[in-house]
C-alpha cells in the first residue's frame, strides 16, 4: 500500500481501564470509500475521532500523507484542514447563518478572500439544493437539510478525506435518502471517505471496502461488499448482519 492516503498503525485507545481499540491497523487509499460497520459500542465513532485527533490515543499512530496526526501537536490545525468530518448529531453553529457556518473556517483558518469563498459556498449549496437557504439559521432547517449543510461546510475546506459518522442516524426516514444521495454523488466524483453507518443498503451501494469491527479489532474485511453482505465469511459478521433482517 504505497499510496495510502490515511494509515492507521497499531492504534490503541482506552477510556481508563476499558480498551476500545486494541492495536488496529487500517489503510485507506486515495479515492477509496471504506465503510466501517459493527455493533453499537464497538468503537466506530472512537476510530473516526482518533483519525482527526479529537481523542488522545494510548498507542500507535495515525498518518495522513505520511504525516503524523497527533492531538495537541503544533501543526494539528493544518492537518485537520485536510480531514473533513460530519457528525451524527447536528453540529452546525446555531448563532451563525448557513452561509456564515460554511465560511467560518475558509475565512478564519485558511484566510481566503471572502468574495471567492462565498462564490464557492454558493456553488456547493446549490449542489445540495440549498442555495436559497443561505441566510437562514440552522434552527430553521430540517435535520436532513442541516446535515447537507454540514457536508458543505466540510467540503469547502477541500479535504483530502471525509469522515462521516452515522450522519443519517438522527434523521427521520424520509430525510435519510436526500443526505445519502449527496454522499453517493461525492463517492462517484472520486472523494476519499471513511464512513460509519447503520444503513446496510447504503453501505453495500457505496463501499469499495467494508470493515467489520468488533472487540477492538477488525474481525472481517472485504473488497467485495456485495459478497460480504450476501455471504459474510465470519460467524460474528453473519450474526451482526442478521440483526438487520426482520
Amino acid at each position: 500500500m504505497e499510496n495510502a492516503l490515511l494509515e492507521i498503525k497499531n492504534l490503541k485507545k482506552a477510556y481508563g481501564e476499558h480498551i476500545v481499540l486494541d492495536g488496529l491497523d487500517l489503510a485507506v487509499n486515495r479515492g477509496e470509500v471504506v465503510v466501517v460497520i459493527g455493533p453499537s459500542g464497538c468503537g466506530k465513532s472512537t476510530l473516526l475521532r482518533c483519525v482527526n485527533a479529537l481523542e488522545d490515543i494510548q498507542g500507535g499512530e495515525v498518518l495522513l500523507d505520511g504525516e503524523p496526526v497527533r492531538r495537541g501537536a503544533k501543526d494539528i490545525s493544518r492537518l485537520r484542514q485536510k480531514i473533513g468530518m460530519v457528525f451524527q448529531s447536528y453540529d452546525l453553529f446555531p448563532h451563525k447563518s448557513i452561509l456564515e457556518n460554511i465560511l467560518l473556517a475558509p475565512l478564519k483558518v485558511q484566510k481566503r478572500q471572502r468574495a471567492e469563498a462565498e462564490k464557492e459556498a454558493l456553488e456547493l449549496l446549490d449542489r445540495v439544493g440549498l442555495k436559497d437557504r443561505k441566510d437562514d439559521y440552522p434552527r430553521q432547517l430540517s435535520g436532513g437539510q442541516k446535515q447537507r449543510v454540514a457536508i458543505v461546510r466540510a467540503l469547502i475546506m477541500h479535504p483530502e478525506i471525509l469522515l462521516l459518522d452515522e450522519i443519517t442516524a438522527a434523521l427521520d426516514p424520509e430525510m435519510v435518502h436526500e443526505v445519502l444521495q449527496v454522499v453517493l454523488a461525492l463517492a462517484r466524483s472520486g472523494s476519499t471517505m471513511l464512513i460509519v453507518t447503520h444503513e446496510m443498503a447504503f453501505a453495500r451501494a457505496i463501499a469499495d471496502r467494508v470493515i467489520f469491527l468488533e472487540g477492538g479489532h477488525i474481525v472481517e474485511e472485504s473488497r467485495e461488499p456485495r459478497a460480504f453482505f450476501d455471504r459474510p465469511a465470519t460467524e460474528r459478521a453473519r450474526q451482526f448482519l442478521r440483526t438487520f433482517e426482520y
Binding site: L54, S77, R80, M85, D91, F93, A105, V109, M157
Partner: peptide, 13 residues
Amino acid sequence: RIQYESAEALGLT
C-alpha cells in the same frame, strides 16, 4: 461538546 469538536475538526485553533 459537539460545538467545540466540530469547530476543532474544521481546523480552528
